[in-house]
Simulated scan of single mutants.
Amino acid sequence: MNIGSFKSTNGQLLGSIATAHIDLPRLGLRPVESDSDKAPAFEIMALNVARRWVQIGALWEQTSNSSGEVFYQGRFDDPQPHRPGSSHAFPHRRRNRNLQRRMEPPAAPPREPRRQPSGTTRTPHHR
């Protein structure tokens, strides 16, 4: 499902994300400079209510095994903790990226132990 997009504006990647539970109209992708191969390629930054940029996630560069196409995969903070999801940014037109989200199914509630009906007792079997 498409949840947002980013485009290059004056050399910066700016965009937005919107779902049923969040609306982030001002986002930026800040490149990460690192020698570590485990470091993300971008930090996902959001403009908060105090008009400060805060990091809400990160994207790592990946390459498709089938096509060789480069895309970015990562996570961002979502106030819906029972439905975590991973995000993927794919090329769309020149220098633009669409952000898609794969939702993980909600976790099943824990199973309660089976109870014996009242008035019955369980006797162990002896051989």
Rank of each mutant, 00 (worst) to 15 (best):
I3E: 06
I3R: 10
T9Y: 07
N10A: 15
N10M: 15
L13H: 12
L13C: 03
G15Q: 00
S16Q: 12
I17D: 01
I22T: 09
L24I: 10
L27W: 05
G28N: 00
G28F: 01
R30W: 06
V32E: 03
D37V: 14
P40V: 02
E43S: 13
I44S: 02
I44C: 01
A46Q: 11
L47A: 02
N48S: 02
N48M: 02
V49F: 10
A50W: 06
V54N: 09
I56M: 06
G57S: 03
G57K: 05
A58F: 04
A58Q: 12
A58W: 02
W60F: 11
E61M: 14
S64M: 01
S64D: 14
N65C: 01
N65S: 15
S67P: 05
S67A: 11
S67E: 11
E69F: 00
F71E: 07
F71H: 15
G74W: 01
F76Q: 12
Q80E: 15
P81W: 07
R83K: 13
R83F: 11
G85C: 06
G85P: 04
S86E: 11
S87E: 06
H88Y: 10
P91F: 04
P91M: 01
R93Q: 12
R95K: 07
R95Q: 12
N96D: 11
R97L: 11
N98S: 09
N98H: 10
Q100S: 09
R101S: 05
E104G: 02
P105Q: 09
P105F: 04
P106E: 08
P110L: 05
E112W: 06
R115T: 04
P117M: 09
P117D: 11
P117K: 08
S118R: 15
S118Q: 14
R122S: 10
P124V: 09
H126W: 08
